[in-house]
Amino acid sequence: MSTVALCAFVAAIGVALAPALQLPAATTVFGLACFGLLHNVTELRYVLGRFGGVLTGPLLTLLLTLCTGIVLCRTVPASELSRAAEICLAYGLLGLACRYGLRGPPVPLGGACAVLSLAAACSLANPAYHFVVLTHLHNLVPLLFLWEWSRQLARGRRLFRALQLFWVVVLPLLLLLGALDGLLAERSAETDRLSAAHSPPAWTDSPVALRFLTVFAFLQTMHYVVWVWFPPRCAPAATASFERRVPVLRGVRVWLLGLAGTVALAALFASDHATGKQLYAAVATYHAYLESRCC
């Protein structure tokens, strides 16, 4: 299994990197339209199956309540108030996760709360930077799940983990440092428009903005590869656990749900891209923040 997974990841890295370098805007937009909702469904299936013992009872209720608050913030017209409310709810969710995850001696919990308080203050003071950082951090989350999954490997664990670090850390750093600038596409009106949401505000008018967009396009594609391909084939126990918990979504039904959502989202993107992106951001709240609890 580890050999198959390694070969598949090597191939996926090459397939994801090529369009990200030459067509970063198209890769970002079409990737979201084609795999955004589908990966939400398959990721939630894995997370709820693998960590079903954690995501249950009052904790799950509180998490869903906070996530729903974030959804409401994302469905109303963007404003300073809605952004501040979303930031506060997000840090409240992280604080809740720390409260449940760091039971025992008070020092670790106190330290975590202090760090979260400082981070929240920075985010509220610089909301534009907060959302750019959040956008990129979300694409790095698969590393944590893959690292945890690899503990079961009797052989090849170090090589598997090294490969994950290569595509999650090394390649993005090389891109950001300009090592692959000779392979990047030329800037265009479309890349400049998308770069505004994926680059630190201070750099949106610099060549670095294109590097950030390219990094996002690459990591987003790999993010989809992980959640759409990896768990269904390499984590059958999580799938079985989810199906026992939610029997109505057994087998092919979960794929039909994801594909139906994909078709609907693609149609909305084609008719009104801005509305489609806003709707997706709201719907994706649940998978994005529930996975953060499990990390």
Rank of each mutant, 00 (worst) to 15 (best):
R161N: 12
N40P: 04
F218A: 05
L109G: 03
P142D: 04
L23T: 07
L140R: 11
L176E: 01
G156E: 07
A114H: 08
L183F: 08
V15M: 14
E291D: 05
T191G: 00
V4A: 15
W255M: 04
T3A: 15
G69E: 12
C88K: 15
G276S: 05
L174R: 07
L146F: 05
A274D: 14
G52S: 07
F166T: 15
S292E: 15
V115D: 08
P77E: 08
F131N: 08
A112Q: 09
F160E: 12
G258Y: 05
C122I: 15
A125P: 03
L89S: 02
A209Q: 04
P247E: 09
G69R: 09
A85S: 12
H198K: 11
A20S: 08
L102Y: 00
Q278Y: 05
L140I: 02
P106V: 11
L17S: 07
L144D: 09
W203G: 09
Y280S: 03
L116S: 07
C295K: 09
R45N: 00
D192G: 11
H287A: 01
V169F: 10
T221Y: 10
A264C: 04
M1N: 13
V168H: 12
A240Y: 08
Y46H: 07
E43F: 06
A274M: 09
C67V: 03
K277A: 15
V4T: 15
A209W: 02
G49L: 01
I70C: 02
G52M: 04
Q164E: 10
H287S: 03
A154S: 14
A154M: 13
S2N: 15
A120H: 10
V248S: 11
S188L: 02
T135A: 13
V208A: 15
L180E: 03
L210C: 07
G104W: 02
T191E: 00
C122Y: 14
V41F: 04
G14N: 12
R45A: 02
V252Q: 12
L279D: 09
P127Q: 12
L94H: 07
H39I: 06
G31A: 03
A114Q: 05
S199D: 04
S150H: 11
L94S: 06
S188N: 03
A235S: 12
V115W: 12
F269M: 13
S117G: 14
S123H: 14
L23R: 13
R253D: 00
V15K: 14
R253N: 09
L171M: 11
